[in-house]
Design a protein around this nucleic acid. Sequence first.
DNA 1: ATACAAAATGTAAACCATTACATTATTGTT
DNA 2: AACAATAATGTAATGGTTTACATTTTGTAT
Lengths: 330, 330
Amino acid sequence: MNISDVAKKAGVSVATVSRVLNNSSSVTQKTVKKVQDAIDTLNYKPNIAGRNLRINKTNNILVIVNSLVNTFFSKLIKGIEDTAFEKGYNVLICTTDNSPEKMMHYLDLLGKKLADGAILLGIEADGANKARIRKISESVPLVQCSERIDDSIPYIAINSFKAMYDVTDALIKSGRKRILYISADNSLFSTEQRFDGYKTALSDNGIKFDSKLVIYGNYGYRTALQITDNFLKKKIKIDAVAAVGDRMAYGALNALKNNGFKIPEDISVFGFDNIDLCHMSSPTLSSVNQNQQIIGSKAMETLFAMINDEPYEMETITDYELIFRESTNI
Amino acid sequence: MNISDVAKKAGVSVATVSRVLNNSSSVTQKTVKKVQDAIDTLNYKPNIAGRNLRINKTNNILVIVNSLVNTFFSKLIKGIEDTAFEKGYNVLICTTDNSPEKMMHYLDLLGKKLADGAILLGIEADGANKARIRKISESVPLVQCSERIDDSIPYIAINSFKAMYDVTDALIKSGRKRILYISADNSLFSTEQRFDGYKTALSDNGIKFDSKLVIYGNYGYRTALQITDNFLKKKIKIDAVAAVGDRMAYGALNALKNNGFKIPEDISVFGFDNIDLCHMSSPTLSSVNQNQQIIGSKAMETLFAMINDEPYEMETITDYELIFRESTNI
DNA sequence: ATACAAAATGTAAACCATTACATTATTGTT
DNA sequence: AACAATAATGTAATGGTTTACATTTTGTAT
């Protein structure tokens, strides 16, 4: 059952039916009604593949993300989805499990016209893949979100440097001087930026950076628990912890508790990302909140503008806020 | 740039190129090479819309879910996605925000051949929509996952009745008799089933069901905190809490703490779903773990079988396990 | 009533890949 | 060497929509 069946039923040409379908100009109310009636009685639904083929557009976008099981990203995707929905786009989710092959496989789908563009969410890429991605971005609309791969691709995120600067500064202003910094062992732009923020805040406050106060985890709870515990064995004195992720902050927090420290009296703990847990745990965890919904929405808007050859920003920096809770005495 | 450009370049017909593309039978190694070379030099990618139109298949599936921002569902989706990937399918995520209109809108896309089938994830539907869904399921492969809408549609989930029976029974066996049951104020199949499990376990252990020991929330933390607090004001004695969700369990737990109760000495708390938080909080929370990955995978396998007219199960019941942690003294 | 402009509708080509059927090339048999 | 059988390739139709261009209808002015 296709458009010409409808045309026959309505006693008009397929062109007219198509015009009604796309409510394009110049078609009489009377014929609109005839056609609409035919559509209704036949319960006709236009075939998307035919349409896509003809207009060379899919109204799909790809979201390429390492993992969905991370509320940071799933909230971001909600932002993307809501805006996509408004604009009539559908969202294909592609999770890569950190596999570059899987990521490149998905990007390949763009060339096959499975989607009109893609949003790269927190994606990391090494030299070779970076070059391939840049190449792809020349022919297909691409947006990078919350993590930076290449300067030639529009970018949406918070200012990671400033956020961690603010955290460190706030801890220092509350009287803390020896701040254990828990970073992640990757080469992500944001990781680097945050580390710079930490170091700069120290130096701006006249505190000498001490590399012994930096340990590296993998964003997970267990590892953070472990490495903090190991660190504490060294008996190096600290009075605060700043972590690049909440899970890591919790790992540290529990390691500290296990070692008899009081939070926040002895040691303040600051997380990053403000996951749900932060306000449910005891003590509740101070953290940096980003508005993922807005980031996602902006990303989708940028992509939409690219797809439609409208002007767009190469860089969109969104807001964040520090949320002070029981794990700090600020 | 299309298949006939490749054909021209390779000096063969489009049919041969197509055969190479689909590595179908009877094409000489020599021509395969010629064609492959042409494909490579032209960097040709077959157009999916053209292909979809011709073969009347998209290799897309829809996942319709209320919210992604819920690790229960995002883990499930990971299971779906992994299996979909193996089978060469792409996953379109449609979040409905509990809006039946949005859900029906997405189901409508199936009729337009946007996808070959759909998985309904934890979706609720009232009379009218239930009928529409059943209708749709007659012409399009549909699977319902973790929540039951209609018996005519294949269903994958744990046995909710038995899971809550086991929780209640375990609490009773550990010496608890007055178990506050925190349910959700919806009419979901699983909600009903769990409640039955609770009541049956009580009666099987010779404990009379007391409707004063049942309160209703909305799966959220704050509401649970509130309603538990309200309940405690009544000074009704309890020695355990069983909640239909972990967030609710945490709300109860914190309300109990605030009211001076010791967990688990005074009151045991049991959650449901085993969210990440469970092993990071203090006390750690006892909970029911489902293997979402497997549920998702089974759902996708069932859908795949339906799409390909292979035999499939109408009901797939997956395993769960009770995880005992610090919030109970079992 | 006529001429003409503007509005409404129709015709047919185009988008791209797959595949039934037709044709040509190859191999093996006698 | 001739022929049959089989393998390899080619031709052309098909799927459903959109749209440039052609044609018809409607409306307006004289």
